[in-house]
Lab assay of single mutants.
Amino acid sequence: MTFKLIINGKTLKGETTTEAVDAATAEKVLKQYANDNGIDGEWTYDDATKTFTVTE
């Protein structure tokens, strides 16, 4: 399955996707991606669209 991350950061905005077997696995990968890029904020997840959003 494809999961999307929408980034609403102070210095970085955009989106990325990852392939994962489930939402929990995708969340780990996407949170690591955000952490690697210095993004720390509030996370939400929409199961209907398989989209995570992080807002700083």
Rank of each mutant, 00 (worst) to 15 (best):
D40Q: 11
A24Y: 14
K13H: 12
T49M: 08
V21N: 14
E19V: 15
W43K: 00
T51F: 03
T17C: 07
Q32I: 09
T11C: 09
G14C: 07
L5N: 01
A20G: 04
K31C: 04
I7K: 02
V21D: 11
D46N: 11
L30E: 00
V54G: 00
K31E: 04
M1I: 15
W43I: 03
T55A: 06
E15R: 04
G9W: 09
G41L: 02
V54P: 00
A48S: 12
T49A: 09
T55E: 08
L5D: 01
Y33R: 03
T2P: 06
D36Y: 08
G41P: 01
T16F: 13
E42V: 15
T11H: 13
E19N: 14
T44I: 11
L5G: 01
T44F: 11
D47H: 11
I6W: 04
T11I: 14
G14F: 14
Y45M: 02
E56Q: 06
I6G: 02
L12Y: 13
D47K: 10
A48C: 04
N35I: 14
T17D: 06
I7E: 01
K10S: 12
K4Q: 06
T11D: 13
D46G: 02
A34M: 06
K10H: 14
G38P: 01
K28V: 11
T16W: 14
G41W: 06
Q32R: 14
E19Y: 11
D22R: 03
G41Y: 02
A48N: 12
M1C: 07
K31Q: 11
D47V: 12
T18N: 03
F3T: 00
T53H: 07
K28G: 09
N35W: 14
F52K: 00
V21K: 10
A26R: 00
V54M: 05
Y33W: 14
A26E: 00
V21C: 08
A24P: 10
T51E: 05
T53E: 06
L30I: 03
E15N: 04
F52H: 01
L12T: 10
K31T: 05
T44C: 06
E27G: 07
T53K: 05
V21H: 15
L12V: 14
D22S: 08
K50G: 06
F3A: 01
T11K: 08
G9M: 15
T44Q: 08
W43Y: 03
G41V: 02
E42G: 06
A24V: 13
K4F: 07
A26F: 01
N8S: 06
K4N: 05
T2V: 13
W43N: 00
A23N: 05
V29L: 12
N35L: 15
K50V: 04
A24D: 12
L30K: 00
Y45W: 04
K31L: 08
E27I: 15
K4W: 08
E27Q: 10
V21E: 11
L12R: 04
T25I: 06
Q32L: 09
T44Y: 10
G9Y: 09
A24K: 10
